[in-house]
Design a protein around this nucleic acid. Structure first.
Lengths: 329, 329
DNA sequence: TTGTAGGCGTTATCAA
DNA sequence: TTGATAACGCCTACAA
C-alpha cells in the first residue's frame, strides 16, 4: 500500500504538507499543491482509513443491525440506509441479530472496537445497557422508543386501517393475527386493529403467532382455518403470513375476496405481483431506511435534527384480496 | 474507551504483558495472568481493533459487494455469507453495487482503505483491474470466473431442466425470457434452455429483457403476451419475472398450467407461497453464500482449499405452474 | 508557507 | 518471565 511518506518523498515535501493538501486544511502554496496532487496521482495514493481512524478516534463506519436480512421486509430498510450512507461516504458494518440478545451484544461490541461513529439498530431491547452506555449516537429503526432517536411506522394506525378496510367491505367475523410479543410494532398493529373492531362492535378473534418466519407462516395459516373456520376477514401480521393465508384459502376452496378478505402488512414489493394481488398496509420501508440514515448523520455531525422521533405514515393499499365498495352509491 | 495501558496500570504490569495474556502468546506466569484477567474483567476491556489493524495491516473485516440487496434473491446469499463470517469472528462491510462500475470501484477502494482481509463480490467484471491487482483474496459469488475463486450455480443445467420440464409436460411453443447480457449466469440459463429445445426440435422464441428489477418485470410480462400470444410455455429469467407473467396470464384469462406453463428460476422463498405455487429451478442461495464464505476464509488462512471453483447443483422443483405427468403410465 | 515531532492503541522485538 | 520501545500510517500543534 502506498503511504503518505512515499507521496511526500516523490513530491519533495514533508508528510505534513501532503496531509494538508489531501485534507484541504491549512495553507499550501499553489505550486506545492500541484506537485503533491501530481504525486498522489502517479502513485495512486489513497489515505489509510485505519490510521486515520486510530488518530481521530472516529471512523467513517456505521453499524447496522437488523433481525434477519432474509426476511423480505428488511432488505428495503437496509437498502434505504445504505443509499444514504453511500451518498455521504459512510460505510456499513452489517449484521443479523436474529432477535438474539447475545448476538446483538457481540455486534455492538465489535462496532465499538472498530470505532464506528454511529449505529442503526432494530433491536429487541432499546433500553439495554449496550445502547444506553454508548458514547455514539444510535437510531432505532422499525422499533419505537420513548426517548431515543427512532424511525418507525405508525403501527396503530396501520392496524386500524386494516380492520377498517375489512369492516367497510363487509367482513363480520374477523381474525386478527397477532405478531410476536417482544416486537413492539407488531403489538401496535394488533392494538390498532382490536380497538377499531371493539369500537365498531364487530366480532373478532385473535390468533397469537410467535414469529414472522417463512416456514411458520404456513403453519399459522393452517391453524387459522382450524381454529376459526367461520372467519370471513383476516388481518395478517405481515405480507408473508397473508400470502400463506391466501394460499391456504385457495387450497380449501374459499373464494378470495368473495368469501374471505385478507389484508397484509408491509407492502413488500412482491405483494402486488400476486394473483389476486394483496391488499395491504403500506409501510414506507425504503424511506424509513433513508430517514434513519439521515437522522443518524445529523446526530453524528451534532446538528440538532428537527425531529429525533420520526413516525412514518402508513397507507392502506386496496388491491384484490378485499372487495370493492362504492362509497355513497 | 478503556485501553491496554489502563489495564496494565491496574494489574501492575506492563502493556507488553497484558498484550501477551490477551493474545495468548509468549510466556506469562500463572499469577500475573490472573491479575491481568481480573483487571480486564473489572475494566471491561476489549482491544481496539483499529489499532490492531494498523499494526498488523490486517483487520477482521471482509468486504461484501452485491448488486442489490432489495432484490429477493440476494438476501439469502448475504445471509449465508454473514452466518459463516459471524461464526468465524469476521465482520462484513456491505455495499450494493447496482451493477454500476464506478460504485463498485468506490467500494473496492474503501475496502482496501479499511484493511479488509478479503472480499466476496458478485461483480459484473471479474477481470477488472480492481480485482486483479488486489493483494487479498477475492471470491466471486453468483458469477462465473475461469481462474479466480468463485461460487455459482449451474446455470446451463438449470436452463436445461426448465425447458425439459416444459417439454415433458406438453408445451410446444415456448418462449425463453433471456436475462441481462452482462450477467453471465443469466446467459448460461438461456443457453441451456435454448440448446435443449433446439436438440428436441421444439419451437421457441426469445424475449430479451435487460433487467431483473421489479418494476420492469410487469412490463416484460405484458410484452411477452403481446409479442408471442401463442406461447404455451415460458422459461422466465427468474422468479420475479415468473410471478409477473403468472399475474398477467391471470389477467388475460389464460389458465395456468392448463393453457400455459411457467417455470421460474431461483426458488426464492416466496415462490412456494403463491397460488398456484411456482414451479421453478432451485438455486441453493443460502448454501452458496456459506460456501463462498468458507472458501474465502480458507484462502485468507492460506489453507489450500479443496476446490477454488465451486459449481453448485440446481434442481427442478415441480409445483403448480406446470402440469403433472405420469411417466410410463 | 512549510517541516518536525509526538501521539492515537496495539503488537513484537530485544534485552534484562 | 517480564518490561521498554519501535513501528504501523496518519494528523496536528508548534516551531521555523
Amino acid at each position: 500500500m502506498v503511504t503518505i511518506k512515499e507521496v511526500a518523498r516523490l513530491a519533495g515535501v514533508s508528510v505534513a504538507t501532503v496531509s494538508r493538501v489531501i485534507n484541504e486544511t491549512g495553507y499550501v502554496h499553489e505550486d506545492t499543491r500541484r506537485k503533491v496532487e501530481a504525486a498522489v496521482q502517479t502513485l495512486n495514493y489513497t489515505p489509510n482509513e485505519v490510521a486515520r481512524s486510530l488518530y481521530k478516534k472516529k471512523s467513517r463506519l456505521i453499524g447496522l443491525l437488523l433481525p434477519d436480512i432474509a426476511n423480505p421486509y428488511f432488505p428495503q430498510l437496509a437498502r434505504g440506509v445504505e443509499d444514504i450512507m453511500q451518498e455521504n461516504d459512510f460505510r456499513l458494518i452489517f449484521g443479523n441479530s436474529d432477535e438474539n440478545r447475545s448476538k446483538e451484544l457481540e455486534y455492538m461490541q465489535t462496532f465499538v472496537q472498530n470505532n464506528v461513529v454511529g449505529v442503526i439498530s432494530s433491536t429487541m431491547d432499546a433500553e439495554a445497557d449496550a445502547y444506553q452506555k454508548l458514547k455514539m449516537p444510535v437510531v432505532f429503526l422499525d422499533r419505537t422508543s420513548n426517548d431515543s432517536p427512532a424511525v418507525y411506522a405508525d403501527g396503530r394506525e396501520g392496524g386500524r386501517l386494516a380492520a377498517q378496510a375489512l369492516v367497510r367491505c363487509g367482513s363480520r367475523s374477523i381474525t386478527i393475527m397477532r405478531g410476536p410479543e417482544h416486537i413492539r410494532p407488531a403489538q401496535d398493529r394488533f392494538e390498532g386493529a382490536a380497538q377499531f373492531l371493539a369500537e365498531s362492535g364487530v366480532l373478532y378473534e385473535t390468533l397469537q403467532t410467535n414469529s414472522f418466519s417463512f416456514h411458520e407462516a404456513e403453519y399459522w395459516a393452517a391453524e387459522l382455518f382450524n381454529r376459526f373456520p367461520e372467519t370471513d376477514g383476516v388481518v395478517a401480521s405481515n405480507d408473508i403470513v397473508a400470502m400463506a393465508v391466501l394460499q391456504e384459502a385457495h387450497r380449501l376452496g374459499r373464494k378470495v375476496p368473495d368469501d374471505l378478505q385478507i389484508v397484509g402488512f408491509d407492502d413488500i414489493p412482491l405483494s402486488r405481483l400476486l394473483s389476486p394481488s394483496l391488499s395491504t398496509v403500506h409501510q414506507p420501508a425504503y424511506e424509513m431506511g433513508r430517514a434513519a440514515g439521515n437522522l443518524l448523520i445529523q446526530l453524528i455531525e451534532q446538528q440538532e435534527p428537527p425531529e429525533r422521533n420520526i413516525q412514518m405514515p402508513v397507507q392502506f393499499i386496496e388491491r384484490d384480496t378485499t372487495r370493492k365498495v362504492r362509497e355513497h352509491g
